[in-house]
């Protein structure tokens, strides 16, 4: 009886998973391995080896990697500082970091467009200070900037979470047994936050790899990521088969990166994504 009740309660979630996750993936797989007339072909998947697509994929991997590393470099020290603060202040600062996420991320990226543009706020300020004007917008650097800005909270939160769960007594014990500050960090803090770091990396790397909106808005149509190629196949060329084929390849990359991270995550204590 109890089991039946539980199964009943999971009904909506099963409907959700089947309708909005499994079915769409099946549809994409079907389109990906068929051509316009519906017969089987691997051409859409092999199409990734075309120089243009390879270039877009490599650029996506590169920008996603750079964004992830930057996020990590910014987040880890920040999480440490946060963790050292009084508990009351901690929650307030975490709140500050989560606050921008209350606003639609498109709006925030559009705001950056205004700030970084040739005649934008940044250049106006530079000019007023007598500094040379910079053209930042519509470059790969601007896209990386947008990604870091957007995905930073996804890196901070899991690292902070894993860090705040390390009990003070563990650190005290290590000190008692003669560890210096550096040893405490290397032998206690770092290993115990690996799971948080790994899930942070996945939460930043995966959306950065598949993003196309940020590169559209901050790249001025000059930065072609694999996500933009797929969008173009769907929206402009009406070639759903090719778009799906490339999506499958991208999914393989996403799954591979997650599997790679997972295999390195031996602690896996719940801060991990899966």
């Amino acid at each position: 009886m109890y089991n039946f009740k539980r199964q009943f309660l999971s009904g909506p979630y099963i409907i959700w998973i089947v309708g909005f996750i499994v079915l769409p993936i099946l549809v994409i797989c079907y389109y990906g391995i068929t051509d316009a007339s519906g017969s089987f072909t691997l051409e859409n998947i092999i199409a990734i080896s075309e120089p243009i697509h390879m270039k877009a994929l490599l650029l996506s991997l590169k920008l996603a990697l750079v964004s992830t590393l930057l996020c990590l470099a910014l987040s880890y020290p920040l999480a440490m500082i946060l963790n050292g603060l009084h508990v009351k202040h901690q929650s307030f600062i975490v709140f500050i970091f989560v606050l921008p996420m209350w606003m639609n991320f498109m709006l925030r990226i559009l705001a950056w467009q205004l700030i970084l543009s040739n005649n934008g706020i940044l250049n106006t300020v530079f000019q007023a200070l007598g500094l040379p004007r910079v053209s930042l917008l519509n470059t790969p650097a601007a896209v990386v900037f947008g990604m870091v800005y957007d995905y930073l909270p996804f890196m901070i939160l899991p690292i902070y979470n894993s860090m705040s769960r390390i009990g003070n007594d563990i650190v005290d014990a290590a000190r008692d047994l003669g560890c210096n500050k550096f040893q405490v960090f290397a032998k206690i803090i770092l290993p115990l936050t690996v799971s948080g770091v790994l899930s942070g990396i996945i939460m930043v790397f995966v959306p950065a790899l598949t993003s196309f909106v940020i590169s559209n808005l901050l790249g001025g149509g000059k930065v072609l990521l694999i996500g933009n190629v797929i969008e173009q196949e769907f929206m402009q060329n009406t070639n759903w088969n090719m778009g799906s084929g490339l999506s499958i390849v991208l999914m393989i990359f996403v799954i591979a990166s997650m599997a790679f991270m997972n295999s390195h995550n031996k602690e896996g204590e719940g801060t991990a994504v899966w």
Binding site: S117, N119, G120, N138, G220, G221, K222
Partner: peptide, 22 residues
């Protein structure tokens, strides 16, 4: 021509030009 280009736009063009960005 691409190195000279500020951006490839469609609907943004009017606003961007009015703002003096190009």
């Amino acid at each position: 021509q691409k190195p000279l280009i500020y951006a490839y736009f469609v609907d943004e063009t009017g606003d961007e030009m009015a703002a003096g960005n190009a």
